[in-house]
Design a protein around this nucleic acid. Sequence first.
DNA 1: TTGAAAGCGCTAACAT
DNA 2: ATGTTAGCGCTTTCAA
Lengths: 365, 365
Amino acid sequence: MSTTIQDVARKAGVSVSTVSNVLNGRADRMRAETLARVEAAIAALNFRPSKLAQQLKTGQTPLLGLLVPSMTNPMYGYMAREIESYAQEHFGFRLLIGSTYRDRAKESAFFEDLLAHGVRRVIVISSLADERHFESAVEQGMVVVSYDRGATPGKRSRVGHVMPDNFEAARLATRHLVAHGHTRLAFATVAGMTMSRSAKIDGFHAAAEEAGLRATAEVLDGGSLDEYGDAVIAEVGRATAHRIATMAPRPTGIVALNDLMAIGLMAGLREAGLEVPRDVSVVGIDGLYLAGLCNPGLTTVQLPVREMARAMVERAMQGEHSPPADESDQVFAPARLVERESVAAPPERQRPPAAHPLREEKTSP
Amino acid sequence: MSTTIQDVARKAGVSVSTVSNVLNGRADRMRAETLARVEAAIAALNFRPSKLAQQLKTGQTPLLGLLVPSMTNPMYGYMAREIESYAQEHFGFRLLIGSTYRDRAKESAFFEDLLAHGVRRVIVISSLADERHFESAVEQGMVVVSYDRGATPGKRSRVGHVMPDNFEAARLATRHLVAHGHTRLAFATVAGMTMSRSAKIDGFHAAAEEAGLRATAEVLDGGSLDEYGDAVIAEVGRATAHRIATMAPRPTGIVALNDLMAIGLMAGLREAGLEVPRDVSVVGIDGLYLAGLCNPGLTTVQLPVREMARAMVERAMQGEHSPPADESDQVFAPARLVERESVAAPPERQRPPAAHPLREEKTSP
DNA sequence: TTGAAAGCGCTAACAT
DNA sequence: ATGTTAGCGCTTTCAA
């Protein structure tokens, strides 16, 4: 089929081991003239050693597994992009990607396949509560790095952890609302608790507490992600917005779990006849570029995505050895608040939602 | 390291070929009792055959290469998702993904790596003009399917082609504007011509012609994609919007190359003090779910993404044999127009852009 | 400085 | 019905 090391050896008039030596940078073991002949043959035949065969021999394959809940979510696309380019540029690794839709069976199946493919390093972005299936993969020799979830305290896990400072991110967002004079605060999240979600809620509460607003700060728990199709989180945001519109008194400052939810929230608020930021202020967390394209522009807390991506790749590449004796989680400072137009002072007194028809979508053939 | 076929054979008290036979569905060649023993051993040892070794032997690896311009673009995320799930569910293939950033060198490097990894089937979503590097990959035994680009007429290519009916999509969008009474039409695109772009432009012109509006229908050629960072297309849209705002007379009905560009366009129009749809109407092409979250909701032509994804996977799996003698491109009807709020009748007379300050982004630490 | 040879884990003739 | 064996393309001792 394609040229093999044998062909090269034959063409260069040397043995395969010599060719293998030049392939593996052991050019010192041979005469310059031999090296030249081999290199010439490689070039002439346009030979590329089969990674397959190399792997089978060495047990190492330059492939990085990446597990994301959904590639359709712009945040994961963003992270995947950063992970890919760093892994490629610094380690020559390609990405073997898989979507899990937050389904444990799918996650496990993906791990099995990775193992079978000889992939030994994986980055997992998941919101699944427990990590047992990862541990078992680690047992089998995998290096796994998990995003946005801390190690279970006590149980020293061999899984690496990288995450943003979710607490601080939410606190920053909440303080921004407080600074604008909001006193009725809400945190909009989805059903189900994860480490990162609870950290954000804690940050939200902490900021409310500081401002003496704890009594009126509430957590709005939206629908489950499973119930919705694709735009999932945004849909939950939309649904939550409709709920907010009917509350009395209504919260005026809302921190969303993430930008996508915030975007859905804004759309829902609009549909319910409420105007952002006149009636309700919204701030997101993530820092998607899409936030800057919204109307109004979404104020959001920018997470250090690139830095986190690098840290994850580095950790995944370290190998099974190096995890610092005291494998503490790697946490990043939340970057900065990016101010746009979705936050303003709360309204003097609350208006009822305008008698605004729900917008309809027509479809024509 | 991990359990091998040898271990299973030993444990079951049979030879490796017997185990291999059960692995490959040749259970009929043995006694039920033997089969049972082998299966028991496999289960007990939690044995998964190494795809690596299988590949080396068979030359087939259940991996599908997918080349996209950028994973950050929601449209590609959407396509990747559909491709992945179909390939996984129907063929048990995983995705080896790569971003090219529309760079030929990166594309070629990716192909080389795929070859080295034993991957023989690739789907390419690219806007690069020529396909020569694909042809060479095909020469080496790859099955490649290219999205959104037709085969060069005459030169019968061995590369498969799948694309939406771009002409019809743009025509549909344009007619919608015409139906709303617009007479000054524009098509907003990016620099550089590709097959799909020119098909859209043709569709745009065709609709204008039908309506006798050809004289005032113009193509607005935005910046190059290379100049921008990540949100690329949206940024081009934004820049184009600023240009539109200063035109006199100004077009009132705009068809955007795609949804992302339309979203950027709407943001830019807003920044320039123009209101959509009161001053300018916009319609996109793609049908991203994000279009429904915009404010105003973006009217767009929904492309049959899932169907196209399936067709591409099917074609990629067919193997090198089947390409129908007259390998014609596979084209899909554009689905439907999804009406939202970004289109209205044109204004009676044009207002100058409001003295509206550009919105600013502040960043605080 | 170079080559011979033994596998890596599996498949598929070919034997028995 | 089951086992033996020769590779797939490469890496890596170990010899020459």
